[in-house]
Design a protein around this nucleic acid. Structure first.
Length: 670
DNA sequence: TGGCCTGTAAACAGTC
DNA sequence: CGACTGTTTACAGGCC
């Protein structure tokens, strides 16, 4: 049946790596890099070619062209980043240009709210993971940006140098103009850098110490990202060659280095001034960075920023040069101040700008998020931000502040589902989630893909999950193995540590009365006794907002990390995914939660309608309703001892209740 | 503080 | 014999 096939899928799926894979994927970013290179190859070439064909373009034209190209490149780059994060398996597929074509859509898809929402992100990661990821991404982004900046600087500088050298053979006037242009570009770029870094600082994304402004990344995890993306972009092929490594090692970090390099290298007084005098991103004067220093060869006169490991590091050029002299020659001949080189510089600049813009956007979003998170938990806030910005919940990841930064934020509690549950870590206490997990089915439905691929512990109790698994089947019954399969199929998380969770599943099946074992033809199957299931629910939980609030607050105080994640997730995820939430009183951020709960209240409370307070369970009822409804009947029919009837009304409520509930599929409306 | 719920670990028995 | 299935017990942590 479905299950069967599903299980098949599962079996194969795991091999493909799950959340872990994606995570690592982001981390290593290597895959992405390649992809980027590929993707960008087109633009890169164009950039180079266009000018050539056009000869001397007017500034406006050139700019336009470059903007477009840069845009593409930047887009590719960013998209790739996103895809790199989530596409576990295909990170290595980044060779052909055609691949890039495919990649874009994929990336886009990834970024779509449906595919990967912050909550999903949150789900994907354990608190620590999340933090790590955030940092990584942040580092990544930073590094890349810086790399770009640096590259650009270097290139510009190089241009200047080249130009100067070539200048000997060219009219001085022309040179003067170009020099000016370059200097302006440099200036502009540096401003961008400053701006960028400042914004990051402002947001606390980067714990930049004024003194170490240039080295924020040093403390960051060595994002495996290849700063060499850029070069590769230009080349059009992600040949991670020596230059790549080189660039990574040598210029991977500080922008200062760039300037420094430029300075040291740019002997020509004319050129150096702008470079060396310009304060770096953080206003830090251009000084040799220790980093740079480390790369001795750069320091020595025999070094050149564009020369490393015996190769020309000019974007797209890997020409081997035995020595600096040869390199210089090469530089002068191949990368002289011509249209092509100029175009390359400009394109690069555009790339940087685009990235910067992107960064700004992300930063903005982040700020909004932060602002939102700082709000009182109870503060009603439909929070549309994520929704609107949804464009890329993912790439966004790049700048998420580390948990620490968000620390103050916490108060927020996650949406209904217990995203709050401290998944990840040790014995996850999903209890709360369980209480609210009634919407489990919808939750699952919405995040099906997510859970399927993310190695995140679902915020539901085993009991809920088991029940869900069973209810999802047409005949409401599953064998133990099928349940296992369901787990593995639905949750990447359960594709490992099998011994543990399987034991838990068995334990739960046996322990909870709500799970009834039925001898079937094909063996024993497990069914769910809804009544029992409901029974076991916490009795007095009013679906009232109050309760919710309490829970929320409790959580918020409890686990910051969890809260943060939850909050993060909540901020966008639920809302994004559950339309139902959006409409109704999207009055509070808790909405999803309260919503669910509310739904419950609204429901006819079985029990003794008279006195018993509204229960939490209702949601489940309704839930179940949607899922179970008829089949339940069937199941019951065939099922032996399942208490389908009206067992003890005292606790649960009259049978009618059940029916009532079932009639109210309305939890959606609440 | 105690009770309840949940998760985890493990021992054990029965079955295939 | 080993794996799987079930049951049961113990313990720990979170929440009320």
């Amino acid at each position: 049946m479905m299950v069967e096939s599903a299980s098949e899928t599962i079996r194969s799926a795991p091999s493909g790596q799950n959340g872990v894979g994606s995570l690592s994927g982001q981390a290593d970013g290597g895959g992405g890099t390649g992809a980027t290179g590929t993707a960008a190859s087109g633009p890169g070439r164009d950039a180079v070619a266009a000018p050539d064909s056009n000869g001397e373009m007017s500034p406006a034209e050139l700019l336009h062209l470059q903007q477009q190209q840069a845009l593409q490149v930047a887009r590719q780059f960013l998209l790739q980043q996103a895809s790199g994060l989530s596409s576990p398996g295909n990170n290595d597929s980044k060779q052909t240009a055609s691949a890039s074509a495919v990649q874009v859509p994929v990336s886009v898809a990834m970024m779509s709210p449906q595919m990967l929402t912050p909550q999903q992100m949150q789900q994907i990661l354990s608190p620590s993971q999340l933090q790590a990821l955030l940092q990584q991404q942040q580092a990544l982004m930073l590094q890349q940006l810086q790399e770009y900046y640096k590259k650009q600087q270097e290139q510009l500088h190089l241009q200047l140098l080249t130009q100067q050298q070539a200048g000997k053979q060219q009219p001085k006037e022309a040179l003067g103009n170009k020099q000016l242009a370059f200097q302006q570009q440099l200036l502009q770029m540096q401003q961008l850098q400053q701006q960028h870094l400042l914004s990051l600082q402002r947001q606390g994304l980067v714990s930049l110490q004024p003194s170490q402004a240039s080295g924020p990344l040093q403390t960051l995890p060595q994002a495996a990202v290849c700063p060499t993306d850029l070069p590769q972009l230009w080349k059009g092929e992600g040949a991670p060659g020596q230059p790549a490594e080189d660039s990574v090692k040598q210029e991977g970090l500080d922008l200062t280095g760039t300037a420094t390099t430029a300075t040291s290298f740019a002997t020509p007084p004319k050129v150096s001034p702008p470079l060396s005098h310009h304060p770096l991103p953080n206003g830090q004067p251009t000084v040799h960075t220790s980093r740079r220093d480390s790369s001795s060869h750069e320091e020595t006169p025999s070094s050149h920023p564009l020369y490393g490991h015996g190769e020309c590091k000019w974007p797209g050029c890997e020409t081997l040069c035995e020595d600096l002299g040869q390199f210089i020659k090469h530089l002068n001949t191949e990368h002289a101040l011509d249209d092509r080189s100029t175009a390359q510089c400009r394109v690069q600049m555009q790339v940087v700008q685009q990235l910067e813009i992107q960064l700004a956007k992300e930063s903005e979003r982040l700020q909004a998020m932060m602002a939102h998170l700082h709000m009182r938990p109870s503060e009603p806030k439909p929070f549309s931000q994520p929704v609107t910005v949804s464009a890329d919940p993912f790439p966004d990841g790049l700048v998420h502040p580390p948990t620490s930064a968000a620390a103050p934020v916490t108060p927020l509690r996650p949406p209904g589902l217990g995203s709050a549950s401290l998944h990840g870590g040790g014995p996850a206490r999903r209890r709360s989630s369980d209480k609210f997990c009634s919407p489990i089915s919808s939750e699952l439905a919405q995040n099906h893909e997510f859970y399927k691929n993310a190695d995140v512990r679902p915020p539901f109790t085993y009991a809920s999950l088991i029940r869900q698994a069973i209810l999802e089947t047409p005949d409401r019954q599953l064998t133990l193995n099928e349940i296992y399969n369901w787990f593995t199929r639905m949750f990447a998380y359960f594709r490992r540590n099998t011994a543990t969770w399987k034991n838990a599943v068995r334990h739960n099946l046996s322990l909870h009365k709500c799970f009834v074992r039925v001898e079937n033809v094909k063996g024993a199957v497990w069914t769910v006794d809804e009544r029992e299931y409901q029974k076991r629910r916490p009795p007095k939980m009013t679906g009232s907002p109050t309760l919710v609030k309490n829970m929320i607050s409790g959580l918020s105080y409890g686990a910051l990390n969890a809260s943060y994640q939850a909050a993060l997730a909540e901020s966008s995820f639920p809302l994004l995914n559950s339309p139902s939430v959006l409409n109704p009183g999207s009055t509070s951020s808790l909405l999803p939660l309260s919503h669910e709960d509310m739904g419950a209240p609204g429901e006819p409370l079985p029990s003794n309608g008279s006195s018993s307070p509204p229960r939490l369970s209702p949601p489940q009822y309704s839930h179940q309703v949607q899922v179970k409804e008829e089949p339940a009947e069937v199941e019951e029919d065939r099922r032996p001892g399942v208490p389908l009837g009206p067992p003890n009304p005292s606790t649960v409520g009259p049978p009618e209740d059940r029916e009532l509930e079932e009639e109210l599929p309305g939890e959606e409306l609440s």
